[in-house]
Computed example of a mutant assay.
Amino acid sequence: MVFEGFILVGLLIVSTTAFFFYQKSARHRFLKEYQFHPSLKCRVMEKYPHLSKKQLDLVFDGLRDYFAICQTAGRKMVAMPSQVVDVAWHEFILSTQLYRNFCKKSFGRFLHHTPNEVRPKKNAACEGIRRAWRIACVHSDIDPSKPKSLPLIFLIDKKLRIKDGFHYSLNCRSRNNPSADYCASHIGCSASCAGGPSNGGSGGFWSSDSSSDTGSSCGGGGD
């Protein structure tokens, strides 16, 4: 009887572990293959009309990257390093049923958008931006302490010339980089928040639900 009990416990552990990895794999696959509705690009373009269709696609690649970072981080808060991607996230949330369904299949819970000013910890933004940097670098095969390039989510605002965006540089001491740029290379190794925007970005944590939604397509902007 004791031996049979050990077997049952072992089978339970194996089956639970297998289900966990299957679920994790399914969520990663869903996010990778997910097609954002064209209407979301229309709404982002309303705020940034200078963006072309190709550039709008890049914005939503950045949003996908951010969600992948959140998947890796689990329930830990992750700051949003990009203003234009944050706008895309806002627009996605406004399609409530579509977003709920996406969250359920990508995270198993509802991914909330939490402004810095309502966070319980003063250093939450610093922790969140460092976590975003480390995970984004790992996902892009970049050494977070000695980066030779920037992950898309940290590069996109500057690349797309987003005037109200967060602009990062690898070496902020370089004469070729404007002093207004954030020091991306300092984020992963600094105890302070000097490397990133302490008052910018948006963190996420989880909750629940599901459903679906539809919309329409639109035209593109100029380069």
Rank of each mutant, 00 (worst) to 15 (best):
V118R: 06
P115V: 10
N177L: 00
C189Y: 14
A191F: 08
K146H: 12
S140R: 07
A124W: 04
S169M: 07
C137A: 07
H112G: 11
N116Q: 11
N116I: 02
I129S: 10
A184I: 06
S149L: 05
F154P: 01
N177R: 02
S185I: 02
W133L: 02
K146L: 02
S149T: 06
K159G: 05
H139W: 04
S140I: 00
D157K: 05
S174I: 12
P151A: 01
K163Y: 11
F166E: 10
K158P: 04
V138R: 00
E117F: 15
A194W: 12
N176V: 08
W133H: 10
A125W: 01
R161E: 06
S140P: 00
S185A: 15
D164G: 11
L170P: 12
D181R: 01
R131S: 05
L170Y: 06
N177C: 07
I135N: 02
C183E: 13
E117P: 07
S192P: 08
V118F: 09
K163G: 10
A184G: 14
S185M: 03
C189L: 09
S190Y: 09
I156S: 07
C189H: 15
P120C: 08
C126K: 14
P120G: 13
A191P: 07
F154A: 02
N177D: 15
R161V: 04
L170Q: 06
A136E: 00
I153Q: 06
S140M: 01
G195V: 02
R173F: 15
D141F: 12
D141P: 08
A124H: 10
C189F: 13
L160T: 07
S174A: 13
